[in-house]
Design a protein around this nucleic acid. Sequence first.
DNA 1: TCCAAAATTAGTCAATTGCCAAAATTTGAT
DNA 2: ATCAAATTTTGGCAATTGACTAATTTTGGA
Lengths: 227, 227
Amino acid sequence: MLILTDFIVPDLKIAPRDGGYARGQDGFEQILRAALTLLVEHGSGALTLRRIATESGMNVGNLNYYFRSKDELIRELLNAVISSYEDSFDAIMHEPGATAAERLEKLVTLILEDITTKKTTRFFPELWVLSNHDPFVQDRMEELYDRARVSLNELIAEINPALPADERETLALFISASMEGLTVFAGYEKPWRSRMPWFEQIAKRSFVTLARELKPGEIKGLSPDAA
Amino acid sequence: MLILTDFIVPDLKIAPRDGGYARGQDGFEQILRAALTLLVEHGSGALTLRRIATESGMNVGNLNYYFRSKDELIRELLNAVISSYEDSFDAIMHEPGATAAERLEKLVTLILEDITTKKTTRFFPELWVLSNHDPFVQDRMEELYDRARVSLNELIAEINPALPADERETLALFISASMEGLTVFAGYEKPWRSRMPWFEQIAKRSFVTLARELKPGEIKGLSPDAA
DNA sequence: TCCAAAATTAGTCAATTGCCAAAATTTGAT
DNA sequence: ATCAAATTTTGGCAATTGACTAATTTTGGA
């Protein structure tokens, strides 16, 4: 059985530009879309102005008309992709469901299935690497994950109202990190991709249990250097 | 308070070379060490032959004597670093502890503390990115994680002997992925680095519970496309 | 239709890249 | 001490990179 959504050109969220012709907006978007395709298909090493120009059917010099430098182009690209994820998260956040636990399970399903797409599997590790040496990327990435955790936080609060805010936030972080980690093992074309349904079951069971049964103070119970 | 272990040059495991002088073995190691330092400190973009030559106090042309191509140099580098981790995992595997659950907790502590080192936080995301477009890296990485999971598997089997092998392996994968995911959030110089002790508590509690309480067939219970 | 702004093209520049060949030097067994 | 093998240096090459300028074409409001 083939999955049909694989070759969809990934989405970008591009802010409308100030004063300009319609063609300009198109060109702007074409360039970023070409850059994203190259990044996803061939990695950051393929992100040269000439390859982006070729991929977008444009002249090299024209890229310099839209973007003062390659650095600015890449920043705009990351910004556009990250914004598209923020939109997705906002949409996911309002998914209906009966109980809070059921909505948490639904959220886990949506996130883990997004992880198996080519776009997500390829883009996020690139983001993680860039964030190691670029403060701008680090800030923007932190902002993205903060927003992605909002719904997680709300659900945990609903499931376990007694849990203090800082412990709740820590649990949300742990859950988020757990799921992100699956990218490398069960993402697109990864060796354990086919086991993602099982991972989903374990994740749901584990996360709901944690949210339900964590007692206030339990996490901080032991000082980290206690033998 | 300053942490003093940050600037330690990361370890490499380099196989002794066939026929050659002692100086040759030194040069070989110097080059790979310089390359790793550059990768960790400045990212893969800094991995040019000239920068590696400067960093290792060598001439550019000499790199071509040791390595037929830049590609071969990088492969040898990844191989050497991965081998060093495999050694570490083998050492960790034989850590003593009373019960299996206690040994599992100890293993979690060791892995999560390794994640906060500069070497690990910086190197692994680079590896993940490279694996997306390089089958050699993908194979080698899979081999590394396979070996890292051996002890995890044994401990789960001891804690819950009734769990079938494939479900046990899936749980080990989930646990491993969970911890790897923390790299991006609580690794070296990451925003939630200071909460790593809390993450450790949650992880121990969660993983031990899963290992103890998962029932055979529970993971595969629902077919993935059941609404 | 006209025309200024917007968008695109063509061509060039210095810098950097990986790679290579030939000469010079160092090593260590004999 | 000798000498072949191993290592290092020197100098350069062709290709690619990001950036820039000037000329050309397209756009869409007046």
